[in-house]
C-alpha cells in the first residue's frame, strides 16, 4: 500500500537516540548521514537532523527534538534526483517525488479525526534532503538507487485494485433508481420472461462471478 510520508517517533537508545528498525522483518541499516536538513512539500526546512537509510525506507530524525522524525518507504518514492541549481532551490539537495494515495480514502478520514497532521503528511508529494556537505549528494543518490532496486513493486497490488473497481460498480448499479424504472420498459438485459425476481438473481450471479474465480465465469458463459 502506498502511504507517503509518515511521522516517525520510534527511537531507541539514550539521548537523542536512533530509529528502531524492523530487524525481525529483515530491515537493515544501509547508511547514516549526519547533518541533513529535510524540507517537506512547500513547508520551510526543519532544523538539522540525521538521515538513516535502510533497505526499506528513508528515516529522518531531528537532532534536537526526540519526538520529531519522518519516514518514507522506498516503495513510495517515485523519482529521486540531485538538484544543484540555486535558482530553483537555495541549497543543493536530493530531490524526491512521493507517490500518494487518493486522499478520498476512508482510512485517511479516520486518521484525520485523531491526528490531522498525519493526513497532511500523507498528501505531500515532494521531499528535499539537504546534506550540509554537498559532496555527499552523489553518494546519497547512488544509495537511493540501490535501495529502490531492493524494493520492487509487490505483485498482488493489481488484483486488489480490480476488485475495488468491481465493488463500486456493484453498489452503483444495484442502488440506482434507473434500474427499477427500466423494469417497466422493454426487457432489460438479464430479465427473463418479464420475471424481475429472476432477473435480479441473475444480476447477483454475474456480480459474484466477477468478484471470484475465472473458472466460475467460464462456467456461467457455458450455461448461457
Amino acid at each position: 500500500m502506498i502511504v507517503g510520508i509518515m511521522h516517525f517517533t520510534d527511537r531507541i537508545g539514550e539521548g537523542i537516540g536512533q530509529p528502531r528498525f524492523d530487524s525481525v522483518g529483515g530491515e537493515e541499516l544501509m547508511h547514516v548521514q549526519p547533518g541533513v536538513t529535510i524540507a517537506l512539500g512547500r513547508l520551510s526546512p526543519e532544523s538539522p537532523g540525521t538521515l538513516y537509510i535502510s533497505n526499506r525506507r528513508v528515516i529522518w530524525l531531528s537532532d534536537t527534538d526526540r519526538d520529531k522524525g519522518y519516514a518514507v518507504d522506498f516503495l513510495s518514492i517515485s523519482l529521486h534526483a540531485v538538484s544543484r541549481d540555486p535558482e530553483t532551490y537555495p541549497s543543493p539537495c536530493i530531490y524526491t517525488q512521493i507517490e500518494v494515495e487518493d486522499a478520498k480514502d476512508d482510512e485517511f478520514e479516520g486518521l484525520d479525526a485523531e491526528c490531522p497532521d498525519e493526513t497532511y503528511l500523507s498528501k505531500i508529494t515532494e521531499m528535499r534532503l539537504v546534506p550540509h556537505d554537498p559532496n555527499q549528494l552523489d553518494t546519497l543518490f547512488d544509495i537511493f538507487c540501490q535501495c529502490v532496486e531492493l524494493n520492487p513493486e509487490p505483485l498482488e497490488g493489481d488484483d486488489e485494485e480490480n476488485s475495488w473497481i468491481f465493488g463500486e460498480d456493484f453498489s452503483d448499479d444495484g442502488d440506482q433508481p434507473e434500474w427499477h424504472l427500466s423494469e417497466d420498459l422493454a426487457n432489460p438485459i438479464g430479465q427473463v420472461n418479464g420475471n424481475p425476481d429472476l432477473a435480479h438473481s441473475v444480476l447477483h450471479l454475474q456480480i459474484n462471478d466477477q468478484r471470484f474465480e475465472d473458472a466460475e465465469e467460464m462456467e456461467d458463459a457455458n450455461h448461457n
Partner: peptide, 28 residues
C-alpha cells in the same frame, strides 16, 4: 536512470529545472 535531463513542460514544473540526472521508479 536518465542523464542530462530536462523537463518537457518547464512552465508547469519549474522546480525540476535544476535536476540534471534522475532515477525513476519503473512502476510510475
Amino acid at each position: 536512470k536518465l542523464e542530462n535531463t530536462r523537463v518537457v513542460d518547464q512552465e508547469k514544473y519549474p522546480h525540476m529545472l535544476s535536476v540534471r540526472n534522475c532515477f525513476i521508479r519503473g512502476s510510475v
